[in-house]
Design a protein around this nucleic acid. Structure first.
Lengths: 153, 153
DNA sequence: CAATAGAATAGAATGATTCTAATATATATT
DNA sequence: AATATATATTAGAATCATTCTATTCTATTG
């Protein structure tokens, strides 16, 4: 079982509530519960489906549609960031700081790369009347099947 | 109407055929026709649906499933590159050279950035037993609604 | 030119996500 | 505190992109 510091255990909804207020979202039972799952503990990468299952397993009464709504609203409000790595694989990232990702398709695994570990210079100006919103760097990985290759020679 | 050089007009399938051979794919009627649409002329970004519609409008008898198959096979064979920019928006890019993209969600528009216009240094090593396959940089743009904002002040 | 391996096809199936219309709940108003 | 209202939640239907399936067709091989 995961260790949760006393401080957090004793005021279980203050942080979740603060975030909802931050996003001007009504603190409903479902949003509070999902917010708690999302933001309590370490940064996470999750899909709507995975959060839905997690919520169910904790006995939270919520529908998949509400999980989708909530994730989209949280993203809209800047509480989450959406990461698109492969077709039909959309993740929500609780780390909203500017950062990047390693992604391995084979094991469908995402890993953060902090901003200061990538240096990036973009020379071309954005097209007229456009501003740069954000820059997403995805470093696609493949397994190093060293032995397989070696055995062919 | 688009100008097509005489050279290409006169030998319409030589290039398409060459590419199919390159990918060890049988030169069927559909593949040849799609290859022609894809690679004749400038570099393009397209979806399965858009290529399907284009083919239909040219009177090419092909099914959507075959367009999907063909795009996937071409990508597999290295004749195309898949670009993922937003959930449920997967593009195929006829430019297979290493390069990056501007993407504007509002008008769902992709624009190339050539490799030499972005300088990138990735400090962290990939996780153990992993190699870097490729690095995808997407510069997300938003419209600069300058006048709208100004009018509020 | 017949045999066969591979490809194309229509339509069904899937999977992720969004929509709909009914019901329930949170906040504002009295 | 009771009521009004605006907003959320819900189950299930609908949608969209994509893949699968089983059949028919076609390019290559002998």
């Amino acid at each position: 079982m995961k260790y949760i510091p006393t401080k957090i255990r004793n005021r279980p909804y203050t942080d979740a509530l603060r975030r909802l207020k931050e996003g001007k979202l009504r603190p409903t039972k479902q949003r509070l519960a999902l917010s708690k799952l999302l933001f309590e503990g370490e940064d996470r990468h999750l899909t709507a489906e995975s959060l839905y299952e997690e919520a169910c397993s904790f006995g939270i009464k919520v529908s998949l549609a509400t999980v989708y709504n909530t994730l989209n609203q949280f993203t809209e409000a800047g509480l989450l960031r959406e990461v698109v790595v492969a077709p039909g694989r959309s993740y929500f990232d609780t780390n909203t700081h500017h950062h990047h990702h390693f992604y391995c398709k084979e094991d469908d695994n995402l890993k953060d790369i902090s901003e200061d570990q990538i240096s990036l210079t973009i020379l071309p100006d954005p097209p007229a009347d456009m501003l740069i919103d954000r820059v997403s760097v995805v470093v696609h990985l493949k397994r190093n099947h060293k032995s397989d290759d070696d055995n062919n020679y």
